[in-house]
Write a protein that binds this DNA or RNA. Structure first.
Lengths: 198, 198
DNA sequence: GTCTATACTTCGATAGAC
DNA sequence: GTCTATCGAAGTATAGAC
Protein backbone atom coordinates (compact mmCIF):
# COMPACT_ATOMS: atom_id res chain seq x y z
CA UNK A 1 0.00 0.00 0.00
CA UNK A 2 1.12 3.52 -0.73
CA UNK A 3 1.47 6.06 2.04
CA UNK A 4 -1.92 7.60 2.92
CA UNK A 5 -0.36 11.02 3.10
CA UNK A 6 -2.66 13.95 3.86
CA UNK A 7 -3.19 16.66 1.23
CA UNK A 8 -5.06 19.94 1.82
CA UNK A 9 -8.26 20.88 0.04
CA UNK A 10 -8.08 22.52 -3.39
CA UNK A 11 -10.32 25.42 -2.41
CA UNK A 12 -8.27 26.35 0.65
CA UNK A 13 -7.44 30.01 1.13
CA UNK A 14 -3.95 29.10 2.34
CA UNK A 15 -3.35 27.03 -0.74
CA UNK A 16 -4.23 30.00 -2.89
CA UNK A 17 -1.78 32.20 -0.99
CA UNK A 18 0.94 29.66 -1.71
CA UNK A 19 0.15 29.66 -5.42
CA UNK A 20 0.16 33.47 -5.39
CA UNK A 21 3.54 33.54 -3.69
CA UNK A 22 5.01 30.97 -6.08
CA UNK A 23 3.80 32.96 -9.07
CA UNK A 24 5.31 36.17 -7.74
CA UNK A 25 8.65 34.48 -7.15
CA UNK A 26 8.57 32.86 -10.57
CA UNK A 27 8.01 36.16 -12.34
CA UNK A 28 10.36 38.19 -10.18
CA UNK A 29 13.35 35.85 -9.82
CA UNK A 30 12.87 32.96 -12.21
CA UNK A 31 11.82 29.37 -11.63
CA UNK A 32 15.05 28.41 -9.90
CA UNK A 33 14.06 30.74 -7.07
CA UNK A 34 10.85 28.86 -6.39
CA UNK A 35 11.75 26.58 -3.49
CA UNK A 36 9.38 25.36 -0.81
CA UNK A 37 11.08 27.47 1.85
CA UNK A 38 11.10 30.63 -0.21
CA UNK A 39 7.51 30.22 -1.28
CA UNK A 40 6.48 29.84 2.34
CA UNK A 41 8.47 32.92 3.37
CA UNK A 42 7.00 34.94 0.52
CA UNK A 43 3.51 33.93 1.63
CA UNK A 44 4.29 34.53 5.30
CA UNK A 45 3.63 30.88 6.14
CA UNK A 46 5.61 27.90 7.42
CA UNK A 47 7.51 25.67 4.97
CA UNK A 48 5.73 22.48 6.00
CA UNK A 49 2.47 23.89 4.65
CA UNK A 50 3.82 23.81 1.13
CA UNK A 51 4.11 20.04 1.29
CA UNK A 52 0.79 19.75 3.01
CA UNK A 53 -0.96 21.31 0.03
CA UNK A 54 1.37 20.00 -2.69
CA UNK A 55 2.86 16.55 -2.61
CA UNK A 56 5.85 17.66 -4.66
CA UNK A 57 7.19 20.95 -5.97
CA UNK A 58 6.16 19.83 -9.46
CA UNK A 59 2.58 19.80 -8.22
CA UNK A 60 2.98 23.38 -7.08
CA UNK A 61 4.42 24.43 -10.44
CA UNK A 62 1.52 22.75 -12.18
CA UNK A 63 -0.98 24.56 -9.96
CA UNK A 64 0.62 27.89 -10.84
CA UNK A 65 0.62 27.03 -14.50
CA UNK A 66 -2.96 25.78 -14.64
CA UNK A 67 -4.42 28.77 -12.89
CA UNK A 68 -2.73 31.19 -15.23
CA UNK A 69 -3.52 29.05 -18.28
CA UNK A 70 -7.21 29.09 -17.47
CA UNK A 71 -7.18 32.85 -16.95
CA UNK A 72 -5.46 33.26 -20.30
CA UNK A 73 -7.99 31.12 -22.15
CA UNK A 74 -10.84 33.11 -20.61
CA UNK A 75 -9.23 36.41 -21.51
CA UNK A 76 -8.53 35.20 -25.03
CA UNK A 77 -12.18 34.33 -25.43
CA UNK A 78 -13.23 37.86 -24.53
CA UNK A 79 -10.51 39.40 -26.68
CA UNK A 80 -11.54 37.50 -29.79
CA UNK A 81 -15.09 38.82 -29.48
CA UNK A 82 -14.13 42.45 -29.02
CA UNK A 83 -14.86 45.01 -31.79
CA UNK A 84 -11.18 45.10 -32.83
CA UNK A 85 -10.07 41.53 -32.16
CA UNK A 86 -6.67 41.79 -33.85
CA UNK A 87 -5.73 44.89 -31.93
CA UNK A 88 -7.00 43.41 -28.68
CA UNK A 89 -5.11 40.19 -29.39
CA UNK A 90 -1.94 42.17 -29.94
CA UNK A 91 -2.44 44.09 -26.68
CA UNK A 92 -2.91 40.82 -24.84
CA UNK A 93 0.16 39.27 -26.45
CA UNK A 94 2.57 42.05 -25.53
CA UNK A 95 1.78 42.03 -21.82
CA UNK A 96 5.16 41.59 -20.14
CA UNK A 97 3.98 39.35 -17.32
CA UNK A 98 2.32 36.99 -19.78
CA UNK A 99 5.50 36.66 -21.78
CA UNK A 100 7.72 36.25 -18.72
CA UNK A 101 5.38 33.52 -17.62
CA UNK A 102 5.69 31.73 -20.95
CA UNK A 103 9.46 32.01 -21.02
CA UNK A 104 9.90 30.70 -17.49
CA UNK A 105 7.71 27.69 -18.12
CA UNK A 106 9.39 27.00 -21.44
CA UNK A 107 12.73 26.90 -19.67
CA UNK A 108 11.23 24.88 -16.83
CA UNK A 109 9.89 22.34 -19.30
CA UNK A 110 13.49 21.61 -20.23
CA UNK A 111 14.20 19.59 -17.14
CA UNK A 112 10.79 18.98 -15.63
CA UNK A 113 9.49 16.57 -18.20
CA UNK A 114 6.28 16.02 -16.25
CA UNK A 115 5.29 19.60 -16.93
CA UNK A 116 6.20 19.74 -20.59
CA UNK A 117 3.20 17.85 -21.95
CA UNK A 118 0.79 20.03 -20.02
CA UNK A 119 2.37 23.21 -21.37
CA UNK A 120 2.36 21.97 -24.94
CA UNK A 121 -1.27 20.94 -24.71
CA UNK A 122 -2.33 24.33 -23.41
CA UNK A 123 -0.25 26.19 -25.99
CA UNK A 124 -1.78 24.23 -28.85
CA UNK A 125 -5.25 24.96 -27.56
CA UNK A 126 -4.47 28.65 -27.15
CA UNK A 127 -3.17 28.84 -30.69
CA UNK A 128 -6.03 26.84 -32.18
CA UNK A 129 -8.58 29.23 -30.67
CA UNK A 130 -6.85 32.14 -32.35
CA UNK A 131 -6.56 30.38 -35.69
CA UNK A 132 -10.24 29.55 -35.71
CA UNK A 133 -11.26 33.09 -34.92
CA UNK A 134 -8.97 34.56 -37.55
CA UNK A 135 -10.01 32.05 -40.19
CA UNK A 136 -13.39 33.80 -40.44
CA UNK A 137 -12.18 37.25 -39.48
CA UNK A 138 -9.20 37.84 -41.77
CA UNK A 139 -11.07 37.32 -45.06
CA UNK A 140 -13.77 39.74 -43.86
CA UNK A 141 -11.08 42.36 -43.41
CA UNK A 142 -9.77 41.84 -46.92
CA UNK A 143 -6.61 40.04 -45.85
CA UNK A 144 -4.91 37.91 -48.52
CA UNK A 145 -4.96 34.53 -46.80
CA UNK A 146 -3.25 32.88 -49.75
CA UNK A 147 -0.22 35.03 -49.12
CA UNK A 148 -0.43 34.57 -45.34
CA UNK A 149 -2.85 31.99 -43.91
CA UNK A 150 -4.45 32.57 -40.50
CA UNK A 151 -2.17 30.03 -38.82
CA UNK A 152 0.93 31.86 -40.04
CA UNK A 153 -0.60 35.17 -39.02
CA UNK A 154 -1.07 33.92 -35.48
CA UNK A 155 2.43 32.48 -35.23
CA UNK A 156 3.87 35.75 -36.49
CA UNK A 157 1.95 37.82 -34.01
CA UNK A 158 2.99 35.51 -31.19
CA UNK A 159 6.60 35.48 -32.29
CA UNK A 160 6.91 39.25 -32.54
CA UNK A 161 5.29 40.01 -29.22
CA UNK A 162 7.20 37.35 -27.35
CA UNK A 163 10.61 38.29 -28.69
CA UNK A 164 10.04 42.00 -28.11
CA UNK A 165 9.01 41.29 -24.54
CA UNK A 166 11.91 38.91 -23.92
CA UNK A 167 14.42 41.41 -25.23
CA UNK A 168 12.88 44.29 -23.35
CA UNK A 169 13.30 42.22 -20.20
CA UNK A 170 16.99 41.99 -21.03
CA UNK A 171 17.16 45.71 -21.55
CA UNK A 172 17.77 45.64 -25.29
CA UNK A 173 15.77 47.59 -27.85
CA UNK A 174 17.51 47.51 -31.25
CA UNK A 175 14.93 47.35 -34.05
CA UNK A 176 11.98 47.44 -31.67
CA UNK A 177 10.65 50.82 -32.75
CA UNK A 178 10.70 49.82 -36.41
CA UNK A 179 8.95 46.54 -35.64
CA UNK A 180 6.26 48.13 -33.48
CA UNK A 181 5.64 50.62 -36.26
CA UNK A 182 5.27 47.78 -38.74
CA UNK A 183 2.71 46.06 -36.54
CA UNK A 184 0.83 49.29 -35.90
CA UNK A 185 0.53 50.01 -39.61
CA UNK A 186 -0.71 46.50 -40.33
CA UNK A 187 -3.32 46.73 -37.57
CA UNK A 188 -4.47 50.13 -38.79
CA UNK A 189 -4.80 48.86 -42.34
CA UNK A 190 -6.93 45.96 -41.11
CA UNK A 191 -9.00 47.44 -38.32
CA UNK A 192 -8.49 51.19 -38.51
CA UNK A 193 -7.02 53.46 -35.87
CA UNK A 194 -6.79 52.44 -32.25
CA UNK A 195 -9.53 54.04 -30.15
CA UNK A 196 -8.14 57.23 -28.60
CA UNK A 197 -8.31 57.50 -24.80
CA UNK A 198 -10.56 60.43 -23.85
CA UNK B 1 43.70 42.66 1.41
CA UNK B 2 41.52 40.31 -0.57
CA UNK B 3 42.13 36.56 -0.50
CA UNK B 4 44.99 35.61 -2.84
CA UNK B 5 43.03 32.67 -4.09
CA UNK B 6 44.53 30.61 -6.92
CA UNK B 7 42.77 30.53 -10.29
CA UNK B 8 43.76 28.28 -13.20
CA UNK B 9 45.02 29.55 -16.53
CA UNK B 10 42.52 30.56 -19.20
CA UNK B 11 44.11 28.39 -21.88
CA UNK B 12 44.02 25.23 -19.79
CA UNK B 13 42.75 22.08 -21.45
CA UNK B 14 40.96 21.08 -18.26
CA UNK B 15 39.23 24.42 -18.11
CA UNK B 16 37.96 23.89 -21.63
CA UNK B 17 36.60 20.48 -20.70
CA UNK B 18 34.67 22.09 -17.86
CA UNK B 19 33.17 24.71 -20.16
CA UNK B 20 32.26 21.94 -22.63
CA UNK B 21 30.54 19.96 -19.90
CA UNK B 22 28.66 22.98 -18.58
CA UNK B 23 27.41 23.80 -22.07
CA UNK B 24 26.21 20.25 -22.63
CA UNK B 25 24.33 20.24 -19.34
CA UNK B 26 22.85 23.65 -20.05
CA UNK B 27 21.48 22.56 -23.42
CA UNK B 28 20.37 19.13 -22.30
CA UNK B 29 18.80 19.83 -18.90
CA UNK B 30 18.51 23.59 -18.48
CA UNK B 31 20.54 26.04 -16.47
CA UNK B 32 19.28 24.81 -13.12
CA UNK B 33 21.08 21.53 -13.81
CA UNK B 34 24.44 23.24 -14.09
CA UNK B 35 25.93 22.76 -10.61
CA UNK B 36 29.59 22.43 -9.76
CA UNK B 37 29.23 18.77 -8.88
CA UNK B 38 27.31 17.88 -12.00
CA UNK B 39 29.62 19.79 -14.28
CA UNK B 40 32.57 17.95 -12.78
CA UNK B 41 30.84 14.59 -13.15
CA UNK B 42 29.89 15.36 -16.76
CA UNK B 43 33.52 16.23 -17.50
CA UNK B 44 34.85 13.21 -15.61
CA UNK B 45 36.73 15.44 -13.20
CA UNK B 46 36.67 16.27 -9.49
CA UNK B 47 34.31 18.99 -8.19
CA UNK B 48 37.08 21.04 -6.59
CA UNK B 49 38.52 21.71 -10.05
CA UNK B 50 35.47 23.73 -11.00
CA UNK B 51 36.28 26.25 -8.30
CA UNK B 52 39.94 26.16 -9.13
CA UNK B 53 39.22 27.44 -12.64
CA UNK B 54 36.15 29.54 -11.83
CA UNK B 55 35.89 31.60 -8.69
CA UNK B 56 32.08 31.36 -8.73
CA UNK B 57 29.47 29.54 -10.78
CA UNK B 58 28.55 32.86 -12.37
CA UNK B 59 32.08 33.00 -13.77
CA UNK B 60 31.54 29.59 -15.31
CA UNK B 61 28.24 30.64 -16.84
CA UNK B 62 29.92 33.71 -18.28
CA UNK B 63 32.71 31.60 -19.76
CA UNK B 64 30.15 29.36 -21.46
CA UNK B 65 28.28 32.37 -22.74
CA UNK B 66 31.30 34.25 -24.03
CA UNK B 67 32.73 31.32 -25.92
CA UNK B 68 29.48 30.69 -27.73
CA UNK B 69 28.86 34.38 -28.32
CA UNK B 70 32.22 34.75 -30.04
CA UNK B 71 31.56 31.69 -32.18
CA UNK B 72 28.20 33.14 -33.17
CA UNK B 73 29.65 36.49 -34.15
CA UNK B 74 32.28 34.77 -36.29
CA UNK B 75 29.70 32.57 -37.96
CA UNK B 76 27.43 35.52 -38.55
CA UNK B 77 30.28 37.32 -40.29
CA UNK B 78 30.75 34.43 -42.70
CA UNK B 79 27.02 34.04 -43.23
CA UNK B 80 26.50 37.67 -44.18
CA UNK B 81 29.14 37.39 -46.88
CA UNK B 82 27.78 34.23 -48.46
CA UNK B 83 26.12 34.32 -51.92
CA UNK B 84 22.63 34.01 -50.40
CA UNK B 85 23.01 35.91 -47.12
CA UNK B 86 19.33 35.97 -46.21
CA UNK B 87 18.95 32.26 -46.70
CA UNK B 88 22.15 31.57 -44.83
CA UNK B 89 21.05 33.87 -42.03
CA UNK B 90 17.77 32.02 -41.77
CA UNK B 91 19.55 28.66 -41.63
CA UNK B 92 21.78 29.96 -38.86
CA UNK B 93 18.84 31.35 -36.93
CA UNK B 94 16.80 28.16 -36.88
CA UNK B 95 19.54 25.98 -35.46
CA UNK B 96 17.96 24.37 -32.42
CA UNK B 97 21.03 24.47 -30.21
CA UNK B 98 21.51 28.17 -30.86
CA UNK B 99 17.95 28.93 -29.87
CA UNK B 100 18.04 26.71 -26.80
CA UNK B 101 21.18 28.53 -25.80
CA UNK B 102 19.48 31.92 -26.14
CA UNK B 103 16.41 30.84 -24.23
CA UNK B 104 18.38 29.38 -21.35
CA UNK B 105 20.49 32.48 -20.95
CA UNK B 106 17.46 34.74 -21.23
CA UNK B 107 15.86 32.85 -18.37
CA UNK B 108 19.13 32.81 -16.48
CA UNK B 109 19.42 36.59 -16.85
CA UNK B 110 16.23 36.84 -14.81
CA UNK B 111 17.92 36.11 -11.54
CA UNK B 112 21.63 36.41 -12.31
CA UNK B 113 21.80 40.14 -12.76
CA UNK B 114 25.56 40.02 -13.26
CA UNK B 115 25.03 38.12 -16.49
CA UNK B 116 22.21 40.19 -17.91
CA UNK B 117 24.23 43.18 -19.06
CA UNK B 118 26.69 40.95 -20.88
CA UNK B 119 23.91 39.14 -22.73
CA UNK B 120 22.19 42.35 -23.74
CA UNK B 121 25.42 43.84 -25.04
CA UNK B 122 26.16 40.82 -27.17
CA UNK B 123 22.61 40.64 -28.50
CA UNK B 124 22.63 44.27 -29.56
CA UNK B 125 25.92 43.75 -31.35
CA UNK B 126 24.65 40.63 -33.09
CA UNK B 127 21.55 42.47 -34.24
CA UNK B 128 23.43 45.56 -35.35
CA UNK B 129 25.71 43.49 -37.58
CA UNK B 130 22.68 42.05 -39.33
CA UNK B 131 20.99 45.40 -39.72
CA UNK B 132 24.06 46.93 -41.30
CA UNK B 133 24.44 44.09 -43.77
CA UNK B 134 20.79 44.16 -44.74
CA UNK B 135 20.70 47.92 -45.06
CA UNK B 136 22.78 47.66 -48.24
CA UNK B 137 21.55 44.22 -49.29
CA UNK B 138 17.75 44.53 -49.13
CA UNK B 139 17.47 47.48 -51.54
CA UNK B 140 19.69 45.63 -54.04
CA UNK B 141 17.18 42.78 -53.96
CA UNK B 142 14.28 45.11 -54.66
CA UNK B 143 12.85 44.93 -51.16
CA UNK B 144 10.53 47.78 -50.16
CA UNK B 145 12.37 49.15 -47.14
CA UNK B 146 9.75 51.82 -46.59
CA UNK B 147 7.21 49.11 -45.92
CA UNK B 148 9.64 47.06 -43.84
CA UNK B 149 12.98 48.61 -42.82
CA UNK B 150 16.05 46.38 -42.37
CA UNK B 151 15.84 46.59 -38.58
CA UNK B 152 12.25 45.29 -38.61
CA UNK B 153 13.23 42.60 -41.10
CA UNK B 154 15.95 41.35 -38.76
CA UNK B 155 13.69 41.38 -35.70
CA UNK B 156 11.04 39.47 -37.62
CA UNK B 157 13.47 36.83 -38.80
CA UNK B 158 14.83 36.44 -35.27
CA UNK B 159 11.37 36.28 -33.75
CA UNK B 160 10.07 33.64 -36.14
CA UNK B 161 13.05 31.34 -35.87
CA UNK B 162 13.25 31.61 -32.11
CA UNK B 163 9.60 30.95 -31.44
CA UNK B 164 9.47 28.04 -33.86
CA UNK B 165 12.48 26.49 -32.15
CA UNK B 166 11.14 27.12 -28.65
CA UNK B 167 7.83 25.54 -29.50
CA UNK B 168 9.41 22.63 -31.29
CA UNK B 169 11.37 21.97 -28.13
CA UNK B 170 8.07 21.78 -26.29
CA UNK B 171 6.72 19.36 -28.87
CA UNK B 172 4.13 21.67 -30.37
CA UNK B 173 3.77 22.40 -34.05
CA UNK B 174 0.49 24.25 -34.74
CA UNK B 175 0.95 26.79 -37.52
CA UNK B 176 4.59 25.90 -38.06
CA UNK B 177 4.19 24.48 -41.55
CA UNK B 178 2.31 27.56 -42.76
CA UNK B 179 4.92 29.86 -41.23
CA UNK B 180 7.86 27.97 -42.71
CA UNK B 181 6.15 28.10 -46.08
CA UNK B 182 5.72 31.85 -45.73
CA UNK B 183 9.41 32.31 -44.96
CA UNK B 184 10.45 30.01 -47.78
CA UNK B 185 8.39 31.96 -50.32
CA UNK B 186 9.82 35.26 -49.13
CA UNK B 187 13.38 33.95 -49.37
CA UNK B 188 12.76 32.55 -52.84
CA UNK B 189 11.28 35.84 -54.01
CA UNK B 190 14.37 37.67 -52.74
CA UNK B 191 17.23 35.30 -53.45
CA UNK B 192 15.81 32.58 -55.66
CA UNK B 193 15.61 28.87 -54.93
CA UNK B 194 17.75 27.22 -52.32
CA UNK B 195 20.72 25.39 -53.85
CA UNK B 196 19.74 21.75 -54.35
CA UNK B 197 21.99 19.15 -52.71
CA UNK B 198 23.56 16.95 -55.39
C1' DG C 1 47.38 21.13 -11.36
C1' DT C 2 44.70 17.95 -8.91
C1' DC C 3 43.34 15.66 -4.93
C1' DT C 4 40.72 14.72 -0.23
C1' DA C 5 38.30 16.61 3.28
C1' DT C 6 35.29 19.65 5.09
C1' DA C 7 32.38 23.92 6.53
C1' DC C 8 28.29 25.77 5.79
C1' DT C 9 23.78 26.55 3.35
C1' DT C 10 19.67 25.27 1.22
C1' DC C 11 16.81 21.99 -0.64
C1' DG C 12 12.66 18.40 -0.79
C1' DA C 13 10.12 15.74 1.97
C1' DT C 14 8.19 13.52 6.11
C1' DA C 15 6.83 12.35 11.10
C1' DG C 16 4.27 13.35 14.69
C1' DA C 17 2.59 16.78 18.30
C1' DC C 18 -0.96 20.11 18.88
C1' DG D 1 -4.95 22.83 9.45
C1' DT D 2 -0.67 24.19 11.24
C1' DC D 3 3.27 23.62 13.91
C1' DT D 4 8.30 21.99 15.34
C1' DA D 5 11.77 19.00 14.43
C1' DT D 6 14.43 16.43 11.57
C1' DC D 7 16.60 13.28 7.77
C1' DG D 8 19.36 12.87 3.85
C1' DA D 9 20.77 14.79 -0.44
C1' DA D 10 22.80 18.35 -3.00
C1' DG D 11 24.53 22.90 -3.44
C1' DT D 12 28.77 26.61 -3.23
C1' DA D 13 33.05 27.38 -1.77
C1' DT D 14 37.57 26.85 0.63
C1' DA D 15 41.81 24.80 2.98
C1' DG D 16 45.60 22.35 2.64
C1' DA D 17 48.17 17.93 1.29
C1' DC D 18 50.43 15.98 -2.61
Amino acid sequence: MATPRRIGAEDSKTREQLVDAAERLLLRDGYAAVSSRRVAAEAGLKPALVHYYFRTMDDLFLAVFRRRAEQNLTRLDRVLESPQPLRALWELSVEPSGTAFTVEFSALANHRKAIRAEIAEYAERFRQMQVEALTTRLPELGWDTDEMPPAAFVVLLTAISRVLAMEEGLGMSGGHAETLDLVERALTRLEGEAPQPE
